[in-house]
Design a protein around this nucleic acid. Sequence first.
DNA 1: CCAAAAGTGTTCTTTATACACCCATGT
DNA 2: ACATGGGTGTATAAAGAACACTTTTGG
Lengths: 233, 233
Amino acid sequence: MENKQKYCYDYPRPALTTDCVIFGFDETDLKVLLIERGIEPFKGKWAFPGGFVQMDENTEDGAKRELFEETGLKDIFIEQLYTFSDVDRDPRGRVVTVAYYALVSLNKFAPTAGDDANKAAWFSVRDIPTLAFDHEKILRMALYRIKGKIRYQPIGFELLPEKFTFTELQHLYEVVLETPLDRRNFRKKFLNMDLLIELDEKQQGVAHKAANYYKFDKMKYEQLVLKGFNFEI
Amino acid sequence: MENKQKYCYDYPRPALTTDCVIFGFDETDLKVLLIERGIEPFKGKWAFPGGFVQMDENTEDGAKRELFEETGLKDIFIEQLYTFSDVDRDPRGRVVTVAYYALVSLNKFAPTAGDDANKAAWFSVRDIPTLAFDHEKILRMALYRIKGKIRYQPIGFELLPEKFTFTELQHLYEVVLETPLDRRNFRKKFLNMDLLIELDEKQQGVAHKAANYYKFDKMKYEQLVLKGFNFEI
DNA sequence: CCAAAAGTGTTCTTTATACACCCATGT
DNA sequence: ACATGGGTGTATAAAGAACACTTTTGG
């Protein structure tokens, strides 16, 4: 029996992939980017972008590469989430995946869908179709992670455009934390941290008092962190 | 050229291992369990227990199996830490490791060192020898993780014997958080959460007023969590 | 002039911090 | 009797929570 497979080892090895949960925020709604699978298994089902890790890249670089290849997104916030390794998580055989999550402003980036005949689309996290593999488990963990993290690290700004109003910022926190927040207390708490720069620019063409735009002072935040500052909202 | 290697694939695959940072607490000191490597690479250097993931086990089960094989420890708290995948992290080739951390009471368990000619020993986290591979990086991340987590989840009790004094509990928090704590305020905060059961038992044979023993009410904690309770210290 | 969201302070309650003396036990 | 760590309460400061009216703008 001839063996045409070229890469041989003394012991069996699981395949190693990455998957990336990409969150976007759209003024009112937290969304995730899904790709419709064009091949079996789970053909026609939606899944997170991802693929096999190559031998000359670490998993984070692999996740970034797949992200760019499948959606056109690059240079966005990305962080390791968890490694999923259940023996039967992929019907094709043993596949271990290192899952990442990424945050992107929907206003700033529009994914280039359909690069390779795969449809890409944003779905509200409250209206997710049936997902391929164990991707529902991955999504639950990603949601849990950002919910826990947004209060203690300024990751929320990655989901907003560079200029944003206080109401947009508050809606983001309300959606992620799944709880209503008091407008005055929220403003007070954020302004007290002194990490927002008030811009000389207001909303245009809204049928109410125009809100002021703010931006996040990332430089100042990083300097404060070095001095022991802890972000908390 | 004949190939004796039996497991062949269309594309190259990294090897997949687990490593486990085991923390123990010894009345005054936070320690980690290290194994002295008997073979190259890094022969004679200290490393965390770990090994290759088998095809019929997920990474957590693999970490638990290696833990038991190399130290005799089982049924202890264990949780995934991070996956380390740098291309050059192992001189033998491409090896990706899923790192875990475990917590154990030193009083309760003594590891059975030297099962397979490998020496196992506890080292204070403030006096760690040179480690093999990227294990120093893994340790830093594990320390950072428990430092962040001990304030918001009751993982500290995993490091203590079932019965402990308030002073032992406080010392644990002081060592992990690397900061002194006020004795009265610490007691007050913990007692207010009402998660400690005061036992009818005191220290024996100490040359000062004997401290009362307490134990953690895990059942009550789990019930409170279901009602939305958040542990915080 | 009406609808819709922006902007703004004060009071009250809860939580955090700082701090010192007496007690029990073994040597 | 003394050295050692155990146990306890109060006063002050800081932070969090609750809450309503006026402003601006477009339609």
